[in-house]
Design a protein around this nucleic acid. Structure first.
Lengths: 260, 260
DNA sequence: GAGTGGTCTAGACCACAAT
DNA sequence: TTGTGGTCTAGACCACTCG
């Protein structure tokens, strides 16, 4: 029986039949344009899991790009976990049970993007002298002025989390109204603070009577706790937070990539 | 007053005074050798936080390498969060409160490297037909044979966690004795299984009477829970686990990097 | 042996930041 | 204006996998 396409083998270079639109006039780097279009092709199914990408040389000549440029595009998708390279074999689309490597930022402004219609109530937004542990976490002098932020997160009108954050008072102004609509991290970004890294600790404990009351739980109910210190790209701590979540209504959910 | 070095400015290229030993005969890539030595210099203080690395061109000529090679070395450290590049400014060592971006693998074989002298007892190591949810998680047919593994983790003789894992029975042989000394992931790696990614969910709940008894807690005590599905680089699920941890003795602790 | 990715070179021009 | 990183090119050779 005759076959028409190049699909005789189980996995063939399906890229051959794809069109890529590269705009050399664009300020967007060529490798990035290519990476985006490859990612789109994968997500949208034009490049199916297991498909070989075809060798880099051919691809680069076909696209009118140099090989390093094509490699840079491919590498960025490998880093995202969408592609796998095997020496002597080729590059294939990951046979993805693997959902798209969820933005790690979801661990930052958690529920923000969860699409559950989360709401935030700013319960407290004041300045006060730093307590010893807050000062230690932020690397500032004890008694320095810090912004104290207390927020209640709700989904479907039900409380989910109680977030308490501390920021050096000199960093920015925090308008409560905007905080409720925009989120803390977006406000910091807007203020020119570029986040670089964060250290997090996730634990659990039983709810105290007061916590239970504020979160609409029973005393002794299991709570998830998270403490986080975030740093900007100079290594300066810019935020310290201690959060508690109702374990009955929330869990941390994320993807890990194994670095080779 | 005369100064000898180039240290007049606050942050100067301290790299200039460093010696790098690059071995072109080695099978280790040059960029990797350089990256390792830079990392060592940072960790060991020869390159202090805030220090500029000095421009890439000079560095490459001084080292007898091409610029792309030097860039590749630097880029790998940027990815690790140790360096920051600023266009028009230079590359500097991150002013690190930021501890070394803990191996994410610690989230896999958690306590393994925690240096607390962890012990593992294999409580159960059998084969049985897959239950519906296990079959779903591993993407195999319900009733297929799976390996069921139950382990108890102890530190200082105290139970810390109860780990329950499921693996497709065809994947490998699991020797209980070696499991206790080597760890599950190392055994999988040895069996030629290359881990690629994992999906994790961390939550909390109160201990049942049985769980409490096995973990030496009181009934109702807060427990941390973790469910994980791990995939190899073909996207095939190779392990599913549900773990519980005593919240009074364990917390997840990790570093996040914000991707630019 | 043929084909693949992995590494490396020696240039070039551009965009951005600081002065 | 000067210096930095960001991007890009057109080659080259090597190491590995597979048939």
């Amino acid at each position: 029986m005759a076959r028409t396409g190049g699909t005789t083998r189980a996995a063939t270079a399906a890229v051959d039949s794809l069109d890529f639109a590269l705009d050399r006039g664009s300020p967007v780097p060529l490798y990035y344009q290519l990476a985006q279009q490859l990612e789109a092709a994968i997500e949208h199914g034009a490049l199916a899991p297991g498909n070989l990408l075809g060798n880099e040389i051919d691809l680069s000549t076909r696209l009118g790009l140099s090989r390093p440029t094509v490699r840079q595009a491919i590498q960025s998708l490998v880093d995202k976990g969408l592609l796998v390279r095997r020496r002597g074999v080729g590059t294939q689309v990951v046979h993805s049970q693997v959902k798209r490597p969820l933005e790690l930022s979801s661990l930052y402004d958690d529920l923000e993007s969860a699409g559950q219609g989360p709401t935030t109530q700013v319960v407290r937004n004041e300045r006060e002298p730093a307590s010893p542990d807050v000062a230690a976490a932020l690397g500032i002098a004890e008694g320095s002025e810090v912004i104290v932020l207390e927020r209640l997160r709700l989904t479907h009108g039900q409380p989910v989390a109680l977030l308490c954050n501390y920021l050096p008072a000199t960093l920015l102004e925090l308008d409560s109204a905007r905080l409720e609509s925009t989120g803390l991290y977006r406000m910091m970004r807007t203020a020119g603070i570029t986040l670089h890294s964060a250290h997090q600790t996730i634990g659990a404990r039983s709810a105290t009577a007061e916590e239970a009351a504020r979160l609409d739980e029973e005393e002794g109910a299991a709570l998830l706790t998270m403490q986080r210190t975030a740093y900007d790209d100079t290594g300066r701590p810019v935020e310290y937070g201690t959060h508690i979540y109702r374990a009955s209504r929330y869990a941390f959910d994320f993807q890990l990539l194994v670095r080779p």
